[in-house]
């Protein structure tokens, strides 16, 4: 009687660990999304803006994804038009408070 109980306990523990691992993995992949897409729209309000949004058309899915950009370097590139609509972008973003906040936003092209 004791042996089956301990086996069940071990199995239960393994299930818990497995579920935790799945949860962690799921959370990790949800935390950061990578995509490559073309900018269809940039919205930025003025020279002193601290935030902007860029809509990217995902190369793989064709879906429009609205990205919130907050880092100074990319904002500066929006302001002086080094990055413009039509540019292809390699982007990583995290979902925060209902927004897709950019952690990496770079043109794919170079010379």
């Amino acid at each position: 009687m004791k042996k089956p109980a301990s086996i069940m306990l071990v199995v239960a523990r393994m299930l818990v660990v497995a579920l935790m691992l799945v949860g962690i993995a799921g959370k990790a992949s949800a935390a950061e999304t990578k995509m490559v897409g073309v900018i269809t729209q940039i919205e930025i309000s003025g020279k002193d803006a601290k935030v902007a949004t860029a809509t990217l058309k995902d190369n793989k899915t064709g879906e429009a994804v609205v990205i919130t950009v907050q880092d100074d370097l990319t904002l500066d590139k929006f302001k002086d038009h080094r990055i413009v609509e039509g540019d292809e972008i390699r982007c990583k973003y995290e979902a925060k408070d209902g927004k897709n906040v950019s952690t990496y936003f770079r043109k794919t092209a170079g010379c």
Partner: peptide
């Protein structure tokens, strides 16, 4: 830095390549 990196950061086929 921005003036210099406008050309120098994207040399070789992309940013920091």
């Amino acid at each position: 830095v921005k003036n210099c990196m406008t050309c120098h950061e994207a040399a070789g086929g992309g940013v920091l390549v």
